[in-house]
Design a protein around this nucleic acid. Structure first.
Lengths: 202, 202
DNA sequence: AACATATGTTAGAGCCTCTTACTTTGACAA
DNA sequence: TTGTCAAAGTAAGAGGCTCTAACATATGTT
């Protein structure tokens, strides 16, 4: 079988696993320099290929970024589900848990987070990205419904989920963009998340 | 006196008002193509000068963007103060008014809004930008304090102002990045703002 | 009137994205 | 086993970008 998929051996003309190594190099670069200063050329240098190589795998630079963003959304989703598993269904703890994952993800991977949400370059036209995002928001809505002891997501549940999302989204951006430093804002994440969850879920 | 400051006459070797015309061209371009796809060259073409001209007025591209961002922050602040003047001191209406201005500004000038908050390229190091932002947030804190019938801004007031800011910030971004379309979210701005203001101010 | 300074210009270095044409490799059918 | 083809590399380069250096021309001060 083809055991070259495991990214180890190069030295051959064909790389074997260029696509995923480019995505990883891109991800690292984005965290180092931000999504704006990322260059395909640099990613190529790190992957050890010529600067024309990526175009066998991606239509253009934007498609590389989309791949990184999509992988990020999957990571975020998985982290959310993993954290949710730790708390009892229908408790506020689960709402807090989702918020924690959201904000922490932004702190841990600010570059990718910005890419996922802020770089709107054809994101809305990318079916996969939109579907993944919708899917994650569906989880939030379901959790809100559970918290309010209903199984089906009502319009009111959706509205409250939306309030929660807006809040953690704004908090994440203000935080990674350092708009909060020196503004005398006591910022204990757990406390803030609990506070907001209570206010929104009554 | 120097009446060439009024941007009209060119045809002369010296432009007369290049700095501000470059800022305006940049602003327009950013709204047309987004802050990422803005190019100095294009702004020069529109202003009718060579692509080296801007460097007599700005250190680099980033400084041009800072100028646009700063002008945006001043516009935002002025709109906020103008809107505040319409409502009685200490009322929830004033909180709603500030939120309205914030979200509307983001909708009307998404490119500049993104620039102001999201492009964190040395923003934190730019004293003027930071000071202007702090100043605007001070207004919010003061309004929250007024709403809770105290003149001085307590830590609790600051905390609530911060919750409000996070919320409208997130809402603005989700909105302009079109993350809300097709997610069955009833989005009546006035209603949402009132709802949130009540939840946060008890 | 003459000069210093501010603010334009042209030319070009060095970087980037992406295309074209060519090369190498691996897979698979005969 | 070998011949062929598609996949996935490479080198070269067009065209665009940022920014610098060297030069040119207005402006305002003296």
């Amino acid at each position: 079988m083809n055991d070259r998929k495991n990214s180890e051996k190069r030295g051959t003309y064909h790389h074997g696993d260029l696509r995923s190594q480019l995505i990883e190099a891109t991800r690292v670069l984005i965290e180092e320099k931000g999504p704006d200063h990322f260059s395909v050329s640099e990613a190529c240098r790190r992957a050890g290929v010529s600067s024309a190589a990526p175009y066998k795998h991606f239509k253009d630079k934007g498609e590389m970024l989309h791949a990184v963003a999509l992988a990020g959304m999957h990571r975020q989703r998985e982290q959310m589900l993993a954290e949710l598993a730790l708390y009892a269904v229908g408790t506020l703890d689960r709402i807090v848990a989702m918020g924690r994952v959201y904000v922490r993800f932004a702190m841990n991977e600010p570059g990718v987070f910005r890419l996922m949400f802020s770089l709107s370059d054809g994101h809305a036209e990318n079916k996969e990205l939109v579907a993944t995002g919708d899917n994650t928001f569906l989880v939030v809505k379901q959790e809100v419904a559970n918290c309010r002891s209903s199984d089906e997501v009502s319009a009111e549940d959706a509205h409250r989920a939306f309030l929660l999302w807006s809040f953690v989204h704004g908090l994440s951006f203000l935080n990674i963009d350092e708009k909060l430093v020196g503004k005398n804002i006591a910022f204990d994440l757990e406390h803030v998340l609990k506070d907001v969850a209570e206010r929104v879920l009554r």
